[in-house]
Design a binder for these strands. Sequence first.
DNA 1: CTTGACCTTCCCATCGTTGGAAGCCCCATC
DNA 2: GATGGGGCTTCCAACGATGGGAAGGTCAAG
Lengths: 159, 159
Amino acid sequence: MNIGDAARASGVSAKLIRYYESIGLIPEAGRTASGYRVYTATDVNLLRFVKRARSLGFSIERIQVLASLWLDRDRSSAEVKRIAQEHVADLDAKIAELRSMRDALGELMRTCHGDGRPDCPILHDLAGTPQKLGGDGAGWYAEPDATAAHPPEHRRHGP
Amino acid sequence: MNIGDAARASGVSAKLIRYYESIGLIPEAGRTASGYRVYTATDVNLLRFVKRARSLGFSIERIQVLASLWLDRDRSSAEVKRIAQEHVADLDAKIAELRSMRDALGELMRTCHGDGRPDCPILHDLAGTPQKLGGDGAGWYAEPDATAAHPPEHRRHGP
DNA sequence: CTTGACCTTCCCATCGTTGGAAGCCCCATC
DNA sequence: GATGGGGCTTCCAACGATGGGAAGGTCAAG
């Protein structure tokens, strides 16, 4: 089994298999006389294990631990569960972070006209200028400064 | 205002300010005769804008567009809203992805004993070996192969 | 023997941010 | 005037995981 066969059998690209080997996630594959990597069904099983774990978002580092537990007949399921628990905590934290971003933006977008007028609560928020209520039209909210009507590419000082 | 002052005033690190300048997100700062970067209150406002946008998860690329809209008095709020909408869609996709990982893992963890025994539905799932019901103890589920009782660092073939 | 598919290694890019090293500048203190 | 310390400069590298590509060797079928 060459690396391409192993890639097809496992769903892990040949490039990634080499990378996993280079960082020590999977053992060094055997080699033919001419230097081609050789894989067995066991190797493919490990690659599938890694792929599935990656698809659940586990980091390479944690997968390394999970794989060694998988291969260790004397493991305790508590150890496995602990690793998974850590990962779930990371996922929950990330989800909460993204959701708070999403909620903040959703609220801003809800109040944005989204028409041809320039005033926009989203820009207000980003600029840190609390939106005034009751006004309308030009001068509704603070600009970056009184003279800056140019895109950021513009250099205020010579090149 | 030196870069350190601008960093303190904006909450963006000096390193990051230089990076933002190098990629063209912010204009090139003015320089003193000796080469020190010089910042104005306007620059700090832009840095704060960038920082707030980053905290909402906007990519640098989108912030570039948002900043140019911010500086453009003739913008339409629809354009701003469209950029924000794209970002929200990205956030939603990412949240959905993470949540599906989290849910899958939560289910596996719910059925994992988490005790001293080696059998564990999490490893079953990762290994792609459907867990048998009704068995117990050794031989409960498939190992990577019949002989692999070694951690992945072990090389099956000589170095 | 030629062709084409495959393999090898090596380098580069992503994305945003941080870290460090080597060297210059500015200000205060002795 | 010398010295010290902190700030500034540029350049280079790293993170995590993956993809892309170049340059060259190998294998099997025609």
